[in-house]
Structures are given as structure tokens and as C-alpha cells.
Simulated scan of single mutants.
Amino acid sequence: MEMNIAIKALAALAQETRLTIFRALVQAGESGLSAGQLAKELNIPNATLSFHLKELSHAELIIARQESRFIFYSANFATMNKLLSYLTENCCAGTSCNTIDVCCDEKSS
């Protein structure tokens, strides 16, 4: 993943409502949720939801699909995994970080 794409994704998630929407879509899995379900479950007005969905979509963090007269949104797990890989690719000097002791120096606490 290129740095500018990672920055765009992180910027989209750096807002409370968008992060809440994204987390709800991750929890919903590949089937996703309709815009109406999201608005109801998260108590977000439709116009506000639409704005935030657009921002997440432009950051390629969500995917929209139309079924009948409804639009369903789901997390773009490929982009999410690329972002996670980008953020951790140099973790712990390239060694496995299975325990906190590997990554964190207790002296710095």
C-alpha cells in the first residue's frame, strides 16, 4: 500500500462517526448492512450517514452494492488488511510480535 492511500484511509477513520460506521460494517461481515439499518442501529440521520459513507467509500474502506431498491454497504476487507499490513510491516524490527515483551521496552515506561 502506498503511503498516500494509507493516509487517506487513516484520515477517513479519524472521525468518531466514520469509525463507528466502519466498525459496525466490520462486525456485520461480508453481507454488510443497508443504509437504513446503519442509520437506525447507529442513530445517525440519513443526510449525515450519506456524507460519512461517501468519505469511507472515497477512502476505499467500504463497498456499496445495490439489491433491489436498497443499497448495502460492507467493509472492504482487502483494503482493511492492506492498511493493517502497511502499519505493521516493520513492526518489532521485522520479527514476530506475538507478545508485548517483544515490542515494548519496559525501561521506556
Score class of each variant (00 low, 15 high):
residue 89 E to R: 14
residue 93 A to E: 15
residue 39 A to D: 06
residue 10 L to D: 07
residue 30 E to C: 03
residue 6 A to W: 03
residue 86 Y to S: 05
residue 65 R to Y: 07
residue 61 L to F: 01
residue 11 A to D: 14
residue 100 I to L: 07
residue 96 S to C: 05
residue 103 C to P: 04
residue 17 T to C: 08
residue 42 L to M: 09
residue 82 K to F: 04
residue 80 M to C: 07
residue 76 N to Y: 04
residue 14 A to H: 10
residue 60 E to N: 15
residue 66 Q to K: 08
residue 22 F to D: 00
residue 21 I to Y: 02
residue 36 G to F: 11
residue 63 I to E: 10
residue 80 M to R: 05
residue 95 T to M: 12
residue 53 L to D: 01
residue 66 Q to W: 02
residue 1 M to H: 11
residue 11 A to T: 11
residue 32 G to D: 01
residue 20 T to V: 08
residue 45 P to R: 11
residue 106 E to H: 04
residue 29 G to D: 12
residue 15 Q to L: 11
residue 87 L to E: 05
residue 68 S to M: 09
residue 26 V to L: 14
residue 45 P to Q: 15
residue 40 K to E: 15
residue 90 N to L: 12
residue 54 K to C: 08
residue 64 A to T: 04
residue 30 E to N: 08
residue 26 V to F: 08
residue 88 T to P: 03
residue 23 R to H: 08
residue 98 N to E: 12
residue 64 A to H: 10
residue 58 H to G: 02
residue 11 A to K: 11
residue 32 G to S: 03
residue 11 A to Y: 06
residue 27 Q to R: 15
residue 69 R to I: 13
residue 68 S to Y: 09
residue 51 F to V: 14
residue 16 E to G: 03
residue 31 S to E: 13
residue 109 S to C: 08
residue 27 Q to I: 08
residue 92 C to Y: 11
residue 19 L to W: 03
residue 22 F to C: 01
residue 28 A to Q: 07
residue 34 S to M: 07
residue 67 E to T: 10
residue 32 G to I: 01
residue 9 A to I: 00
residue 37 Q to T: 06
residue 35 A to H: 04
residue 28 A to G: 08
residue 71 I to H: 12
residue 69 R to C: 05
residue 13 L to Y: 12
residue 61 L to V: 00
residue 13 L to I: 06
residue 42 L to A: 04
residue 32 G to A: 02
residue 82 K to Q: 13
residue 79 T to H: 02
residue 97 C to I: 12
residue 8 K to R: 09
residue 75 A to W: 01
residue 17 T to W: 03
residue 38 L to Q: 02
residue 32 G to T: 03
residue 62 I to H: 01
residue 107 K to T: 15
residue 75 A to F: 05
residue 17 T to M: 06
residue 14 A to Y: 06
residue 76 N to C: 10
residue 50 S to M: 03
residue 104 C to R: 09
residue 103 C to H: 04
residue 26 V to R: 07
residue 4 N to Y: 09
residue 75 A to K: 02
residue 25 L to T: 00
residue 97 C to P: 14
residue 108 S to C: 08
residue 91 C to T: 07
residue 76 N to M: 06
residue 16 E to Y: 05
residue 41 E to K: 09
residue 78 A to K: 14
residue 109 S to H: 10
residue 45 P to K: 15
residue 79 T to P: 01
residue 66 Q to D: 07
residue 42 L to P: 03
residue 102 V to E: 15
residue 93 A to V: 13
residue 37 Q to E: 15
residue 19 L to C: 04
residue 86 Y to I: 03
residue 107 K to D: 15
residue 88 T to L: 00
residue 99 T to P: 02
residue 104 C to M: 14
residue 46 N to R: 15
residue 31 S to H: 09
residue 82 K to E: 15
residue 21 I to D: 02
residue 62 I to M: 04
residue 47 A to T: 14
residue 84 L to M: 13
residue 107 K to V: 13
residue 21 I to P: 00
